[in-house]
Nucleic acid binder design. Structure first.
Length: 566
RNA sequence: CGGGAUGUGGCGCAGCUUGGUUCAGCGCGCGUGCCUUGGGAGCACGAGGCCGGGGGUUCAAGUCCCCCCAUCCCGACCA
């Protein structure tokens, strides 16, 4: 193929809207164009990359016995009512009506529709296990689309659904999915880590996320540096070892004046006590009313854990007015003593014997607060956010922290969907049982962007060979020079014949322009036909290592392959 | 959804404070010609903009006011 004939609209200047590397480079290198917030057109180069990623994914899904299907994007509301998610999914669900005012949505995920399919078509244990998958667009009306392809409202996803007879079957399917994902991301040339994860809106019990390690990632991962331990989790899910501290001896409750001392820092400085003896009382608004979350002063609340603990759909910090109404005091002086709001007490708080809390009164705090004695503790929870340095929940060694981009997630769903969607089968005894489900998804378009995040430099993208839009570009320095043009053409033909995907940059541009574009687009290998063509030589260049080799034209294919395999 | 900011040829921006003859302009890109050909050359000519949309104020509005829309960035969700 010839660059002169391809639609590769590279930009010299950086579009103002792009912040992160993948967004910037994919726009500049002519891979994508924005149509609306979080909605993109994929140009030929991007489409080629996506096709490669999909091919890898298909191979690995087929390898574990997955059968590819194609489910509709537009889904009737009834199915979502049946699963109960029509309301649960909230404003992120793109909703629409047909001419008869019937409700539909654009699929953000396909549990409902695939489970309904299997419920209707599968009856016997003999047909299980069943692994169905598709590669298709997904729609989520994100609160805030951003970072280009990393968080779009329309994106391409591979989603697979597993149906098993029982938990043991699900365990096997889960293991298959997990291993397939490990192979997919390895083959894509990504540095990644599988971490324990919260199950979020999909629901279910066990879950792992596959994180591409990148500083631009939105997700925070904590992990145990001890390889033998290997604990790693999304911070939303992460737990640390519970080390109870009493914070001193039990003593009579006492109110002290703390004029103007609202923040943890102010109070500990004023009273001369460590932050870990303080209790933060945070009021949250939920659909069931206000709740108060209690964590130690040196901790942060993990809102995902809190939401799971409370089993509520909405959770957000209460505003000042609500806090004052509930506590009778301005913000900064809330405390659990005498508070007429349900309390969620972190286990570290429950362990304290003499804590400092707000007194629900302006400019006052309580000291020597004893949980259980001074306020009710009905069951405790782990609602704190784990941070780097906390002891590993498994081995006690200090945890480390790193950022990542979530490109895939595996779930054990259990019977959550099969029961409500009535996906039952008959076992050998003729007893009707719900199927046990699992699911996993890969963000195809996000994975492309994640690859760019991980593989680029100041000059442009550096595609891993396995997903590069083309393996090589052949670049005649001067297309007016008949010898150079001819040599470039021959090399490109030879490469194509040898199964190397090569483009010929035959544009009548000056060499600098073509070199810059080659670096920007990120072809793994470049072959330059320049002044050395007179001696029968061409230059072969490795984009990633910047290595160059001057080789006889006949050996160009071998040299290119060597770089591609390196 | 809160907070902040920005919308001016394809891209990047200036002009707005102090309305009006430098008000529609610059750089890049694009077209034609010449020239050049190992890291985004040079010269010449040229095409391209209802200044995000609507409403006001005014003799006069990119410029001032109001409303809307879009986009981006920071916080709560997810592949």
């Amino acid at each position: 193929m010839r660059v002169s004939e391809l639609l590769i609209p590279t930009l010299r200047e950086v579009p103002a809207e792009a912040e992160v590397a993948s967004h910037r480079l994919l726009l500049r290198a002519g891979f994508i164009r924005k149509v609306a917030a979080g909605i993109y057109t994929y140009l030929p180069l991007a489409q080629r990359v996506l096709m490669k990623i999909k091919a890898i994914v298909r191979e690995e899904m087929n390898r574990i016995g997955g059968q590819e299907i194609l489910l509709p994007i537009i889904q009737p509301a009834e199915l979502w009512h049946q699963s109960g998610r029509w309301n649960v999914y909230g404003p992120e669900l793109f909703r629409l009506q047909d001419r008869h005012k019937r409700d539909f949505c654009l699929g953000p995920t396909h549990e409902e529709i695939v489970t309904a399919l299997v419920a209707a078509e599968v009856r016997s244990y003999k047909q299980l296990p069943l692994l169905l998958y598709q590669i298709q667009n997904k729609y989520r009306d994100e609160r805030r689309p951003r970072f280009g392809l990393l968080r779009g409202r329309e994106f391409v996803m591979k989603d697979l659904y597993s149906f098993d007879r029982d938990e043991e079957g699900l365990d096997r399917s889960y293991q298959k999915m997990f291993e397939a994902y490990t192979r997919v991301f390895s083959r894509m040339g990504l540095r990644f880590r599988a971490v324990e994860a919260d199950t979020g809106a999909i629901g279910g019990s066990v879950s792992h996320e596959f994180m591409v390690l990148a500083d631009s990632g939105e997700a925070v991962i904590v992990y145990c540096p001890d390889e033998a331990c290997g604990y790693a989790a999304n911070v939303e899910k992460a737990e640390s070892m519970f080390v109870p501290e009493t914070g001193g001896e039990e003593a009579p409750l006492e109110m002290v004046a703390t004029p103007g001392m609202r923040t943890v820092e102010e109070v500990i400085g004023f009273l001369g006590v460590p932050a870990k003896r303080l209790v933060k009382t945070l009021l949250y608004r939920t659909e069931r009313g206000l709740v108060a979350a209690l964590v130690r002063g040196d901790r942060e609340v993990n809102e995902v854990k809190l939401q799971n603990h409370l089993d509520v759909l909405t959770l957000e910090l209460a505003d000042e007015a609500a806090i004052e109404a509930a506590t009778g005091a301005p913000v900064g002086f809330s405390g659990p003593v005498g508070l007429k709001v349900p309390l969620v007490v972190d286990r570290e708080v429950a362990a304290l014997k003499a804590a400092v809390t707000g007194a629900n009164k302006a400019d006052a705090h309580f000291v020597n607060v004893c949980p259980g004695r001074d306020f009710p503790v009905t069951g405790t929870a782990d609602i704190r956010l784990v941070a780097a340095g906390d002891p590993c929940a498994r081995c006690g060694k200090p945890l480390a922290e790193v950022r990542g981009i979530e490109v895939g997630q595996v779930f054990k769903l259990g019977e959550k969907y099969s029961r409500v969607m009535e996906a039952f089968y008959l076992d050998e005894q003729g007893i009707q049982r719900p199927m046990v489900m699992g699911t996993c998804g890969i963000g195809i378009t996000r994975a492309m962007a994640a690859a760019v995040e991980q593989h680029h430099d100041a000059d442009g993208i550096i595609w891993p060979v396995s997903i590069a839009p083309f393996h090589a570009v052949v670049l005649p320095v001067n297309v007016q020079d008949a010898e150079q043009a001819a040599a470039a053409g021959r090399v490109q033909q030879a490469l194509a014949a040898a199964g190397v995907e090569a483009v010929l940059d035959d544009r009548a541009e000056r060499p600098g322009v073509k070199f810059k574009d080659a670096d920007l687009v990120g072809y793994p290998v470049r072959v330059t036909a320049g002044r050395h063509v007179a001696e029968g030589m061409v230059e072969v260049h490795n984009r990633r290592t910047r290595e160059s080799a001057l080789v006889p034209e006949e050996e160009a294919v071998t040299a290119v392959k060597k770089f591609l395999e390196a």
